[in-house]
Structure formats: structure tokens, C-alpha cells
Write a protein that binds this DNA or RNA. Structure first.
Lengths: 197, 197, 197, 197
DNA sequence: TATGAATGAGCTTTCATTCAT
DNA sequence: AATGAATGAAAGCTCATTCAT
């Protein structure tokens, strides 16, 4: 019984993981439930034993990882640390979550449009809110006098977020560099820029 | 006759522009030909007088702007200029093309998957090739000793490209800052970083 | 053992009664086996321990009540009683069975289409046969010179049957009037009509 | 052009009429769009050129006939006529609409459950409202002292309505008796009853 | 040029039914 | 006696595409 329950739960995890992978590869709309069912070894009708709808499956794919990045970043912003340390941790957090939940995060960033309803109705963090946290972080840096005040904060936020988010298009979890190494490069560029000291 | 041909050409431009806008707003797959036809004031069947297929329409939406960014960047990389100047121009070029052809570029960056066949079959620049140009540019900076050699070039390329490309998600052509102003912020961050000098 | 058998039998009665209620509320086709299973507190697969198919369940819902109305009416028609008394009893029988087996009878009258196969194959009374009994009854009244001969018998049969059967749409077993009281009103109208004597 | 428009409109009428016939024969849920499409000579997908959904098709099947019976009965109830004449006309109206729009009315009476949403949202008369008109009519008869006061008005209403509505189950538009002849029988029974004067 | 009508493949979803445990 | 898991057929609906006019 306990075994059966575990099997069922693992089957569901399998479905969600497979969906994440396929959504990432082909996009949410282009992936059919038949694709997913075939990949986990069942018929499309059988999926409905585990999920309520394709949209809900999308939601299951992204829910936990989103909560994770978001709450971690929240903690970092609220922490009592020097600004440069916070930025380093924020970037590292971002890349680490990418690494741990790669296809899920990629799906979230690419197919957010199909998610907004579900997210809002479940009071989950939307991309917009994540961005606001970055803005807050940058503003702390300015207030502390640690970062230049000759750049537009909003644009700086877009710059950092773009640098980090774009990883959904190239990141490879089994790649050459660890997430921390990638984060280190990004942090260096973000703080000191490319030019030699 | 010539007038008729002009009208026809302008009708086609209208269709392509409208498609760009709608693809940007709702995504390629979620936009139906009926949506586009309705927006230009005709019936969906009539579109086929101007286009061969939906996929071709997508191609028409992105073809020219892509050629533009790509060839401009090519010229910049090949030019005989100091590295920092080249970077500044590359970023400015990027943002300017965004500004001039906003929805088109956004469609290119978001729905590239549906384009790859068409692109390759037309020997058009793919995202990968554009990225290679940036890599070349960065390598020139290293060779010239102008940029730090303690960062991974590939990662630095991803960082800059991400910073610039991500604009497809937030850029507003009628926004507060001109493309050149945005480019200036990005260039500053890319070269000197966020910390005070 | 006997206890187990009783429990099993009572479980089956529960299923049939629940099915009757749900079929009545939402219609045969709109009611799923899952609805029924949930209402009796089991899973849909488990129902098949008690029934062979959904169609058989429908049959079980209506079988006994139908037999009851039908055989009662048969007895009334065959009895040696004055016509007016027979009509009164026929109507009272009808309303009483409605009262005792409300949702079952309602299902029979509404979803007869899905039943015909099962009924005929079990030599059970169909709506048509019940109607023939009423026709016989009316013909007895004409032959006895007790009812007017200026009305078409068939139509008169439809009129009475309609009056009685339509109750499946409005009757409420826990309503204000008893089945006998309803039958009295109907009998009065059927025999004397609405106008004042 | 005018010809084309007529053809399109007639095609739609054909679809609605065919749907009415099939819904009547097999019920709303048991009738598939493929059935309807095949009967009018097209593919199921093509139906959507004419209708928005199956539910809307059901609505189109019943809308006009319902309005007709209802507004006619309204006029009769409001008219300045003796009660017996009103009853006669109300019954004749009912049977005439049955005759003119047979399968449509039958569908309305049988599959009302699938219609309630659409009806309420379009402020169309529901079965309940039709019944209220009959109640009003009967009350007028009582107030005028023309009908017996020893019968429950509500039950009398159900009796008459049942007599008339049940026709949806047996009426045959090409049958032996005209709708007026049927109405005459029903009126006689309703007013004088079955017993000889 | 453009329309109106139809196609047909493919999609998500539902559900009665089966069966090993 | 009942469960959990899966099946598979069929449903309603969408939409790019075609084509005679």
C-alpha cells in the first residue's frame, strides 16, 4: 500500500518532469499531451488520472521552482549584508535554481503567458514581482552609496535580470561550468565590468 | 497598374506589420490567421493571396530586421576601432534595431523555434551566428589587452547578449529613454560595472 | 456469511437508489459512474463488482417500479368495477407509484430511450404497453356507455396519460399534497372537467 | 451575391432543422455533431462555420418556437374573452405550435436542462414562466366564477400542462388529426371531463 | 483581389470499462 | 470487496489551408 502510493506519486513526478522537458524543448503549445504520454509510456487519456488539464500540468511544472527562487531572493534582499555580497548571492541563487530545476525554470520564463491566470489565481509570484525584488536590491546599493548613481536604476535592473534570465536559452545543467562559477563571472561583470582594473 | 502594384505591396506590408504586432502580443502559435486577417480588415482566406503559409508570414516578419542587426554588427566587428568603442557601438546597434523594428525582433527572439527551418533553408543568420559575432568581438578585446582575462569569454558573451536580448521582454519603443540612452547605461555597466569608480 | 450477503445486497440497493437519484437530477448520460461511486463512497471501478454495465444499472433502477405500476393497472382494468371507479383507481395507482418510487419512475419516463433494448430483451413492459392498458380502460367506459362517445379514444388516452405522466417533472414526494389528494384532483378533472357543474 | 447570401442562410436553416430532428430522435447528448454534419452533407468541422458551439445550436433550435408559444399565450391571457374561450385558444395555440415546430418544441421540452443557462442568459422564457401563465389563466377562471373552486389551482395547472406537453412524446405532425382537432378533444376533456353530460 | 464555404488533420478532454492486486 | 491504474474510443472544437467564384 505504501509502496503503491509511492509508485503513484513517482508516476506523477515522472509526468511533471517529462512535461517540463518537452515543454522546454518544443514549447507549451507545440507539445501535445500525446507527446508527453508517449514519453512516460502511457496513452494520452491516462494522463488525466494524474492531472486535471494541460494548463494545470504547466502550473505543476513551474510552481515549486518559482517559489524557491523567489523566497530565496526575498531572504537575500532582507538580509543584513553588504550590497556587493547581496548581489553576489542573488546572482548565485538565480543560477543555482536554474541548475537544479532547469527545464522547469526555462518553461516558466518562456511560456509565462499561458501561466498568468493560474499563477494569479494561486497567488504565486509572477515575473513582475521577481523583478521588483531586484529593483529593491539595487536601490539599497544606491542608498548605501555603494553603486554608481549615474545609471538609471530601472535599466540597471533590466540589465542584471536579462543577463541572468537569458540563461534559460543557453544554460546546460551538465555543462562545463558549475552554477557558482557562472554566477562568479556574472557577478564580476555586474560589479566591476569587463575592463581591466 | 503601377498604382495597383503599390497598393498591393502596401497591403502586404500591412499584413506583415500586423502579424508582427499580434505574434509579439500573443505568440506565433496562439495567433490565428483569422486574428491577423480581422486586424487588417479581410477574411482569412484572402491572406493567401499575399502569403504562401503562416510559417512564411513569420519569416517575412523577421527577415529584414535580422539582416540589419547582423550586417551592422559584422561591420562593427570588422571596423578598425578601439575595443570599448566597438562594444559601445555593438550595444547601440542592438538597441537601435530593437527600437526601429520592435515587434519583429521580439518575435524573432521568442518564436525562433518555428523559424529555424525557414531560416536555414534561406541561409539567413540564426541566433547562434549572431552570438558568434559577439564572441569574436570579445576575443578582440582580450587580444588587445583591453578587457580582463579572468573571465570566461563564452560566459561574458552570454552576459552581454542576455542583457541586450532580454529587452525583447520589456522594451517599449515609445518609452522614456531613447535607444541610445539605454545603450549608454548598458555599455557603462558592461565596461565598468555597477560599483563606484 | 448471511450477514455478508446482506451487506452486499444492501450495498447494491444503495447503488441503485443513488443512481436513481442522480439519473433523475442530471439525466442518464450526464451522470457518470464516478458521480455515482462518489455518492455511495467508493471508486468507480468498484461499481463493477455489483453491476455489469451502466446500462444495466439503469435497468435495475426502473425494473421493479415499472412492474408494479403495470401489474396494478392490469388488475384494475380486469376488475369488475364501475368505469368511474376504475379510472379513479388507475389514476391513484399511478400517483402512488410515483410517490413510492419517485426518482426511479422519473428516470424511466425521461430516459426510456436508453432502456428500450434492455426492456425488450427482458420482456418488460414498455411505455407503449402501459398506454395500451389505458386505451383498453377507456374503451370499456365507452362500451359501458359511461363516457362520451364524441371524443377520440386515442386522444383521450393521451390526455389522461399526459396529465399523469407529466408529474415526473413537477412531483415532489415530500410535497404539500398526498398522492391520493393529487389523484383526486386529476380524477375530478378527468371525469367532470373544470367547469362548474 | 444576394443569391450566395440566401444559400448561406438556407444552409444554416438546414443545419438547425436537421439538428432539431436528430436531437428529437436521439436526445441532445446522444446526438453528435458528426451525426448532424453527415445528415446535412458536410464534415463536423465545417459546422463551425455556421455555429459557435453545440450548445448554441441547441439554443438556435428552440429559440423562435419558444418565443412564439409564449407570446401567443400571453396575448390570450391578456385578451378580453370569456374564460372557456381563452382555455380553448390556449390549448389550440399550444397544439398549433407543436404542429408547426414539432421537433424543436420536443427538444425544448426534453432537453431543457442543457438549455437553462443559455435561456437565462438570453432572457428567454423558461418552462417555469410558461407554467405561470397557465396558472394566471386558471385563476381568472376562478375569479370569474366559471370554474369549480373545489380543485387545487396548481394541480389543475399541472393537469392541463401535462395533457398538452406530453404531446411531445406522441405527436405526429403528419398524423390523422389536425392540431385544431386534437385541441378540441383536449378542450372538451379539460372543461367538461370524460363523463357524459 | 477578395470572399465564402468547406476541408481534414489534430487537439484536449471525457468516460465506461477492464483487470491485477 | 474494493482499489488504483490504465485503456481506448469517441466527443467537441480549432485552425491552416484550399478553391470556385
Amino acid at each position: 500500500m505504501s509502496k503503491a502510493r509511492n509508485e503513484s506519486a513517482s508516476r506523477e513526478r515522472d509526468i511533471v518532469a517529462t512535461a517540463a522537458r518537452l515543454f522546454k524543448e518544443k514549447g507549451y503549445r507545440a507539445t501535445t499531451l500525446e507527446d508527453i504520454a508517449a514519453a512516460v509510456g502511457m496513452l494520452k487519456g491516462s494522463l488525466y488520472y494524474y492531472i486535471r488539464s494541460k494548463e494545470e500540468l504547466l502550473y505543476l511544472v513551474v510552481r515549486d521552482p518559482i517559489r524557491e527562487v523567489y523566497s530565496e531572493l526575498e531572504a537575500i534582499v532582507a538580509a543584513d549584508l553588504p550590497f556587493t555580497e547581496k548581489i553576489a548571492r542573488a546572482i548565485a541563487n538565480h543560477m543555482t535554481v536554474f541548475h537544479l530545476h532547469y527545464p522547469h525554470i526555462a518553461v516558466y520564463l518562456h511560456d509565462y503567458r499561458h501561466l498568468m491566470d493560474k499563477l494569479e489565481q494561486n497567488v504565486i509570484e509572477t515575473p513582475k514581482q521577481y523583478q521588483r525584488l531586484w529593483d529593491t536590491l539595487l536601490r539599497q546599493g544606491i542608498d548605501a552609496g555603494e553603486i554608481r548613481d549615474d545609471v538609471d536604476v530601472t535599466m540597471a535592473g533590466y540589465a542584471l535580470l536579462g543577463m541572468c534570465n537569458w540563461a534559460y536559452r543557453w544554460y546546460n545543467p551538465s555543462g562545463r561550468l558549475s552554477p557558482q562559477e557562472v554566477a562568479d563571472v556574472f557577478t564580476k561583470i555586474a560589479l566591476q565590468g569587463l575592463t581591466r582594473a
